[in-house]
């Protein structure tokens, strides 16, 4: 499942997509993210599955633009810590 968390507002789209078919629940992203945006647990959108997967915490879904700000300098943006930490390549950002 391609899970998109976030929002669209007047200034743009701020979505983080987690591909739960790729995610193995290793929690490396949880450790890597300085803003503690991720958590790992049961897939709340697939109640019949027993696999644990990453998701964006509920209280972080409305403020991604600001929370991720420090990782996204306007110039010379390095690879995002969350994306870099995820070996299966399950995380992507829309902005």
């Amino acid at each position: 499942m391609k899970a998109n968390y976030g929002y669209r507002d007047g200034s743009g789209d701020y979505f983080i997509e987690i591909d739960t078919d790729l995610c193995d629940g290793c929690a490396d992203c949880v450790a890597a993210c300085p803003a503690s945006i991720f958590e790992v647990g049961e897939d709340e959108n697939d109640p019949l599955s027993d696999d644990e997967v990453a998701s964006v915490k509920a209280d972080g879904r409305k403020s991604l633009e600001y929370d991720c700000g420090p990782c996204k300098p306007v110039r010379d943006r390095p690879e995002l810590p969350c994306v870099a930490s995820c070996k299966p390549g399950a995380i992507s950002h829309s902005w």
């Binding site: 499942m1 899970a3 998109n4 968390y5 976030g6 507002d9 959108n45 697939d46």
Partner: peptide, 12 residues
């Protein structure tokens, strides 16, 4: 009926 992709706009 299983979800394969979703997008939720929390600011809607």
């Amino acid at each position: 009926g299983k979800v394969t992709r979703f997008l939720m706009n929390d600011k809607c």
